[in-house]
Structure formats: C-alpha cells, structure tokens
C-alpha cells in the first residue's frame, strides 16, 4: 500500500480503550537487554576475527565487552521477569514457536562460549579451547543479535509485528554498529580498523533498514515518528550517522575522535532499541492501530469475495 494513500481513520472503539494489552516489559530491561545482547553478540564476532587476525588488544576488549554485555543482558532479563526466581523454567521446554524459548536455548549456548573465550583470553588458561569457544561464540552470536528482532516481531504489537520483515536487519545492523563503536572506542586505533568498519557498516545497515521500516506504509509506523519514540529515534539517527561519519573520517587518526564517535554509534544503537520499544508500546495504547488496518484488510477481503454486491454496510 502506498504510504500516501488516504486512510479512513474513523473507527468505533469501546470508550477509546485499548484493544491490546500494553507490553508488561520495562523499557530499561527489555530494550536494554536487546541492546546488550546485540552488543555482546557482535563483539564476539569482532573478538573471533581479532583472534584470527592477530589483534590482541581488539580481541581482549571485544571479548570482555561480550562477556560484560551478555551478563548485563541476563541481569536485565531476570529483572524483568515478574518472578525472577523462576528463570530456571526457561529451559523446561524447547519450543520452536516461542522466540523466547529459542532465545533462551541460544543464550544458554552463547553465554558459556562467550564467557569461556573471555576467561581464557584473560587468564591464558586453555588457549586453544578458548579460541574455539571464541569462534563458537561468534557463530552463536549471530543468532543472539537477530533473534531479538523475532522476539519483538512475534507479538500482536502492531509496530513490532508490522516490521517483522526488516526488523532482523535493523537489529543486525544495530548490533554490529554498537559492537564496532564500543570496540573502536576501547581499542587502540591501529588495531581497530575492523571495528571501525563494522561500526560504519552496521550503522549504514541500521539506518537504511530503519528508514525502510519507518516508511513501510503501515499505519503503525506513525508511532515511530511521534511522541517519545519519535524523539528517541531521531536522536538515534543523529548519533548513529554522526558517529559513523566521525569514525569513517577521523577514526583512523585520533583516539579521541575514535572514542567519541564509537560511543556515539553505540548510543545510536541503544536509542534505536528504546525508540522501537516505545513505539510498540504506543501502538498498543491507541486502538486505531489495531482497528483501522484490520478493518481495511477485512473490507478488502470482503470486496474481493463479493465484488458485485456490497455486503452489509457496517453501521458506523
């Protein structure tokens, strides 16, 4: 559908009450979890690349970042559960229909790998195994960075679900951008070339895909432009683009520029996650994001089914 199409946004509702329930999640926990997970995952990739390309400083900082970030993300997750003591229930079942179940299993593979590779790197114990774990973490990390997009998209939340086709790419780009940015900030400029490239590449992907998401024409994309979410996403773009430009132009020469720009890209990534979270929430509050598209779909279907006669006109 063309984004310019005039919509009939008049709709009836039940005292303007939401149809959907708002996500029970807290922004800091869940957006934070997704950001930290993405950061960890892409950092593991950097770490693996660094270990194989002989960039020890980059390797150390990336692996430590991965460990710290994944730990933080688990803390956020546990905190968000209404009953943290029951986190253990997560591995009670293995459900392919549940991104959270799949994610839990992915995390349970990734976490120990990331941890092992970081510890081995720090302590020097079992270096071979540590390096193998590093590779494993990189591979598993690719899933950690992207499954969270499915986690959000696989809901009835209009903004998230409507974005399900692009969201994995947005998140992949964003994860890469954040890891690249953080590594660029933390590592010496000489070793940080791949990190800068990852940050810039990630930022490009993140930005392009976000724009695609925002202009998909779905009514729910309104929420990406308005209110808190709109502000967060505009800020996110400024940080991401500004940081990426900084890294691309000055990252190679100045540690300071590198640090500031890297942090900026990472901040852009974090802001993006928060923005998307807030937009989703907003789309559950106003019933129009549920009613209007569904009604259009319904009417289109009815029109297709009975092209000649107009079926019972809904009394508005």
């Amino acid at each position: 559908m063309s984004p310019r199409r005039q919509r009939n946004e008049e709709f009836t509702s039940y005292y303007g009450r939401p149809i959907l329930k708002q996500p029970t999640w807290h922004a800091l926990d869940i957006a934070g979890y997704i950001f930290a997970g993405g950061l960890a995952a892409a950092s593991s990739m950097l770490g693996a690349g660094a270990q194989h390309s002989g960039r020890p400083a980059l390797e150390r900082s990336a692996k430590l970042t991965a460990l710290t970030a994944i730990s933080a993300s688990v803390v956020a997750l546990v905190h968000d559960l209404g009953r943290p003591e029951r986190f253990v229930n997560m591995l009670r079942v293995a459900k392919p229909t549940s991104p959270m179940s799949v994610g839990s299993w992915i995390l349970s593979v990734y976490g120990p790998l990331a941890g092992a590779s970081a510890l081995s790197n720090l302590t020097g114990v079992l270096p071979r195994a540590g390096r193998a774990a590093g590779v494993g973490a990189a591979v598993a990390g690719s899933a950690v960075a992207t499954y969270t997009a499915v986690l959000l998209a696989d809901t009835a939340v209009p903004t998230w679900h409507d974005a399900h086709e692009v969201l994995p790419f947005v998140f992949a780009g964003s994860a890469a951008a954040s890891a690249g940015g953080v590594a660029a900030a933390l590592s010496p400029v000489v070793q940080a070339g791949p990190a800068r490239r990852m940050a810039v590449g990630g930022a490009v992907l993140e930005t392009v895909m976000s724009l695609k998401m925002e202009r998909s024409g779905n009514l729910s994309t309104e929420t990406l432009h308005q209110g808190r979410a709109g502000t967060l996403l505009r800020l996110s773009k400024a940080c991401t683009v500004g940081g990426a430009v900084g890294l691309a132009l000055g990252g190679r020469h100045s540690r300071l520029v590198s640090a500031v720009s890297g942090a900026s890209v990472a901040a852009g990534s974090a802001l993006l996650r928060f923005g998307i979270f807030e937009a989703g929430k907003a789309s559950t509050i106003d019933p129009k994001y549920v009613v209007v598209p569904q009604r259009e779909r319904l009417e289109a279907r009815e029109a297709a089914a009975a092209p000649a006669v107009s079926t019972q006109a809904p009394a508005k």
Binding site: T24, R86, S98
Partner: peptide, 12 residues
Amino acid sequence: VCNGCGYCVSAC
C-alpha cells in the same frame, strides 16, 4: 509454572 515473562501478554 508461569515465570511472569509477559510474552503471552504481548502476543495475544
């Protein structure tokens, strides 16, 4: 069994 993850809430 429920651990309060709230995923079902956003899914319904």
